[in-house]
Design a protein around this nucleic acid. Structure first.
Lengths: 204, 204
DNA sequence: TGAATATAATAAACACTGTTTAGTATATGC
DNA sequence: GCATATACTAAACAGTGTTTATTATATTCA
């Protein structure tokens, strides 16, 4: 009975087709323009067919959100080559910001929007987020071991570092940095030096 | 011709009625449930009537967003009684966080959502934001004058402080703090000590 | 192989959304 | 009193996510 397996394969192919179409539409035209009907048009199936492969729209965007994390993870871990954990932490911060500015729609889905997280059943099951965050806590842990930063709870520092960079990035992406009336490149430089400054403050 | 003035008054009354209804619906049921039709039902007029008083839905929510800033401003400036600017800065931070947790929907509209800012014509015209942010820069300016914090550009520090607190708050409000699996009250305490810790790091 | 069953896909509908248009009462100005 | 201006709305437009009933196809078993 290889039929069952072929059917399973075909089901996965169809899921992939839908995700590919949704991702392409999402990155090209944004979240609002990525409707079930647009996806259906794109893959040349009826809208109802999509519901045979995904429970709802949020489930589709949860997968896209997970793919975004895979992307970010790959980028972040490229900094593994940097042996000094404090230097690595700085590089991770800059990589994180670059990711956000290069992929604002992914960043939105991953850290700002509510939609994709409606999928997690509750009680800490955000696997995608845990992986990237784990890399930060690990690096900060090494910094603490080597006494490169002021002693404090590793989780508290991790959350602080993450929140600091996320704060800068998300206020910028949502247009709130217009309170300082400067051209975009000047602001981006400012955000960069804010991170640099912040990390200096952590130094032991 | 007092008729013209009465008409103007009536026009304002109607605008207020719509805003009141929208605000009540928004705070009670959230943004998505606050539709033009729901507002119309509530004030017992047709949906089209609302468009005689507001250009579009975003314009209504821009007013609500401005009201939110008036509220936050009042709260923040209560800290004016604190003469020491560094202590005042800490109090402002805690007031800001309390506002966010007490009024998550307002906070969303003011600092996270895109919708209401579609109203600002461009090139730094975000009056509501400037006012609250101005109070922070002013306080930080005083801290610098009195050499209470490490010297740096006042704008850079202001943006850093704001981003730090906003980062903590917005990650929490959008469910991303679930990476640390703790009860809400423990997390809120953690965010509080993160701010305290951060401000200590700024100290001269 | 042929009938019965299970699977895959869809057309159409449901209940919404923001917004616009054309038409109707009512109030104002002359 | 009549023409004009104002206030209002019913209905439609163009979309949204999702569900249901139906049909066509593929698979299983006698």
């Amino acid at each position: 009975m290889a039929i069952k397996e072929r059917k399973e394969r075909e089901k996965q192919d169809m899921r992939n087709l839908i995700i590919e179409s949704a991702t392409q539409l999402f990155l090209k035209h944004g979240y609002d323009k990525t409707s079930i009907r647009n996806m259906a048009d794109d893959i040349e199936y009826s809208p109802a067919t999509i519901y045979l492969y995904f429970k709802d729209k949020d489930e589709i965007f949860y997968v896209i959100h997970e793919n975004g994390f895979a992307l970010l993870d790959t980028e972040l871990r490229k900094n593994d080559a940097i042996k000094n954990p404090f230097e690595r932490l700085g590089a991770i911060g800059r990589t994180y910001m670059k990711f956000a500015f290069d992929n604002p729609d992914y960043y939105d889905l991953m850290f700002i929007m509510r939609a994709p997280l409606s999928q997690i059943k509750s009680e800490a099951e955000w696997k995608a987020g845990e992986c990237a965050f784990g890399y930060v806590t690990q690096t900060i842990g090494e910094c603490l071991e080597q006494k490169l930063i002021k002693p404090a709870d590793v989780l508290l520092i991790s959350i602080s570092v993450w929140s600091f960079v996320h704060g800068l990035v998300s206020l910028y992406l949502r247009g709130r940095m217009c309170i300082v009336p400067m051209p975009d490149d000047v602001i981006e430089a400012m955000l960069d030096s804010a991170v640099t400054n912040y990390l200096i403050g952590l130094k032991a």
